[in-house]
Simulated assay, not measured.
Amino acid sequence: MPPRSPLPPSSPRSPSPSSGDAVVAVLRAAGCVFAEDEARLLLAAARTPYELAALVDRRVTGEPLELVLGWAEFAGQRIAVTPGVFVPRRRTEFLVEQALAQAPDASVVVDLCCGSGAVGLALAAALGRVELHAADVDPAAVRCARRNVTAVGGHVHRGDLFEALPGHLLGRVDILAANVPYVPTAEVGLLPAEAREHEPLVALDGGTDGLDVLRRVAAGASRWLTPGGCLLVETSERQARAALDAFTQGGLTARPAVSEELYAVVVIGTRARKGA
């Protein structure tokens, strides 16, 4: 799937295109940067000319391509996404890569603030047989995540961060991945319209400095991690130092990982092993 290409909020409506060239032309006129790639996907998804026109119309009026198609490509997996759910970003694949490098033999994985469950599904697909738990406070996200993670034997829970998790996971988690919201409240209005208008605020707004949820996760993670287990959270470059401090205050040994290619920053915290 091509990178997300935001459309202007006043994009023109589709004149019922019926051919590939016509779809490309309509998408390009609407400001879609990856018109050819998106046209190919829309043509493949539509079963009739009427359905194609409806899909194109949804796209040119500003709906994210992933929601129009009903799926997003993430870490080699096709992730079901539904309206009102955060769409997984390509940069978050870096978090998955770092988790696998940190704990290649993980047997218990938790995807906190799971959204669609994309991170948990990607980890389970790479690790093989794992005990996977995903959790989110948003009921729409929980419903969507169930569509994705139950296919690999995963369990989905609804609740506020660790309150959602079953008690038998205490001290057993090898990988705790938390794709928390980290946009400062005052900057939410600066996000692309696709995010502001189609994704839940709870998945975007991280509080005054963007780190409210991250701090809560960092403070509670060590109780859930097994010795040597790791917590991974995505953040921004300018927030990384404060995020590292939060991890350290939570009793974790913390370090940053940076991907310049994906413009991604992940903070990794590890619980000390016994006797270390």
Score class of each variant (00 low, 15 high):
residue 21 D to K: 12
residue 171 G to V: 11
residue 54 A to L: 11
residue 172 R to S: 03
residue 249 Q to I: 00
residue 232 L to E: 09
residue 207 G to P: 09
residue 180 V to Q: 04
residue 245 D to C: 11
residue 154 G to W: 06
residue 216 R to F: 00
residue 159 G to N: 14
residue 212 D to H: 04
residue 254 A to H: 07
residue 178 A to F: 08
residue 180 V to R: 00
residue 172 R to T: 13
residue 154 G to S: 14
residue 7 L to D: 01
residue 31 G to D: 08
residue 141 A to R: 03
residue 240 A to Q: 12
residue 176 L to A: 04
residue 108 V to N: 09
residue 33 V to H: 14
residue 21 D to I: 10
residue 198 H to V: 00
residue 44 A to N: 09
residue 66 E to W: 05
residue 157 H to W: 13
residue 270 T to Y: 02
residue 17 P to A: 11
residue 105 D to I: 02
residue 203 A to F: 01
residue 178 A to K: 03
residue 16 S to D: 15
residue 117 G to H: 03
residue 120 G to C: 03
residue 44 A to S: 14
residue 50 Y to C: 14
residue 101 A to W: 05
residue 20 G to H: 12
residue 243 A to C: 12
residue 265 V to S: 02
residue 112 L to M: 14
residue 84 G to Q: 14
residue 232 L to K: 02
residue 252 L to G: 01
residue 273 R to L: 10
residue 255 R to Y: 11
residue 28 R to H: 08
residue 208 T to M: 06
residue 10 S to G: 15
residue 144 C to T: 13
residue 87 V to P: 06
residue 249 Q to R: 15
residue 174 D to C: 10
residue 13 R to S: 11
residue 13 R to G: 07
residue 140 A to C: 13
residue 224 W to F: 11
residue 122 A to R: 01
residue 248 T to V: 11
residue 132 L to V: 05
residue 88 P to S: 05
residue 218 A to M: 08
residue 268 I to D: 07
residue 45 A to T: 04
residue 8 P to T: 11
residue 44 A to Y: 08
residue 98 Q to K: 15
residue 43 L to G: 12
residue 251 G to P: 11
residue 199 E to T: 03
residue 222 S to K: 10
residue 258 V to L: 05
residue 157 H to Y: 14
residue 86 F to E: 05
residue 213 V to W: 10
residue 42 L to M: 03
residue 247 F to R: 13
residue 202 V to I: 09
residue 64 P to N: 04
residue 254 A to N: 06
residue 39 A to E: 04
